[in-house]
Amino acid sequence: MSQKIYFHVGLSKTGSTFLQHQVFPKLQGIYYLPTVKYRHALKLLPKIHDERVLVSREFDQQFEQEVKKFSAQYPQAYPIIVLREHSSWAVSNYKRFVKNGHSISFKEFIDIERDKGLFKKRDFDYERYIDLLEQYFAQKPLILFYEDLQKEPVKFVRKIMDYTGAELSYSDVNWNPRHVSYDIDSLKLVRKLSDKIQFQKKLEVHTKPRGFLYNLYANIVRYSILYASKLFPKTWFPKEEFINPAEIEELRQYFSPQWDSLRNKTH
């Protein structure tokens, strides 16, 4: 039997949670190795004897490293990537970083002019991601778009089914959005208080149980702020803009030629 491995690589903030909870586990005719087991995927896969196997994990800055590692063992895998319009992807990821305790501004997150941000322009280069998939995997990647998932989710999922040869009972899927973004006032408050608390970044904590205990403490503080913020009077919230709209537009315009090209190629 010739086993086929399908590798969903994300990107992050492109509907991965919906796919991982509502679609992938319910696909028929394919074994799904969920994201929580990805850390041990290369050890687990040789023990799975199903004809088709789907592995899912979402990446952004770890993309190249993880693709190289996975392809070294499974170069014949079939990659699946979901892209999202650059400025929308940046805003969504920035909100995630603020929620997780980063007090940086949007300009410090992605700086198009000087490229000094936490995320670099190369992290938004979707053609680079596609080139890496084509370089390290023998199979042509399935390229999907988050905007299509929002507009026509059934058609979007149908493309995954056609690519993998799996089936799905649509009535088993909860098509309602799983993640709802936190409101801007709450995120502004978290950003302001994070600057005061000065959370240690997760990547700087390596040891256990110290790392586990720190992350537990940080998450309790962050989510307490987020949920309790609904009870706070409006006067408690910072007045400044969460993101300058001009910075979002600058990002959109910078990457719009690539985005338009990718959309035209795959439609």
Rank of each mutant, 00 (worst) to 15 (best):
I5M: 13
L118Q: 07
V36Y: 04
E64W: 12
K201S: 00
I130P: 03
T235M: 05
V205G: 02
R39M: 05
K196Y: 01
L231W: 14
R222I: 10
L42T: 08
L149A: 04
R52L: 14
K26T: 07
K121P: 14
N174P: 13
I80G: 07
S88Q: 09
V9N: 13
P153C: 06
M1L: 15
E247S: 07
S229T: 08
H21L: 10
Q198M: 04
L262G: 03
R96T: 00
A41H: 04
P153K: 04
D172T: 12
L11E: 03
I104A: 00
P34N: 02
H21A: 06
K202N: 00
I160L: 12
Q65N: 09
E85N: 07
A246D: 09
V221P: 09
Y129K: 11
S169F: 11
I80V: 15
K26S: 05
I184C: 14
W89T: 08
S56G: 10
A166Y: 02
Q3K: 15
T17S: 08
P25D: 04
D131A: 14
K159C: 02
V82P: 06
D148F: 05
S16Y: 04
F97K: 02
S256N: 02
L54T: 11
L133I: 01
L42Q: 12
A72C: 14
L133S: 01
S12V: 12
L11A: 10
F145Y: 08
Q3N: 15
S256F: 00
P34S: 02
K43P: 03
E249Y: 02
L42R: 14
P141A: 09
V205T: 04
K95N: 01
D195I: 01
Q61T: 11
K13C: 08
E240H: 07
L44C: 06
N176T: 09
F106L: 00
Y223E: 15
F18C: 03
V157K: 07
Q253G: 06
I5S: 11
E113A: 11
D195Y: 10
H40P: 02
D148W: 00
L144C: 06
N219Q: 15
Y32F: 10
E147T: 04
P34Q: 00
H206Q: 04
Y214I: 07
R178H: 10
Q73A: 13
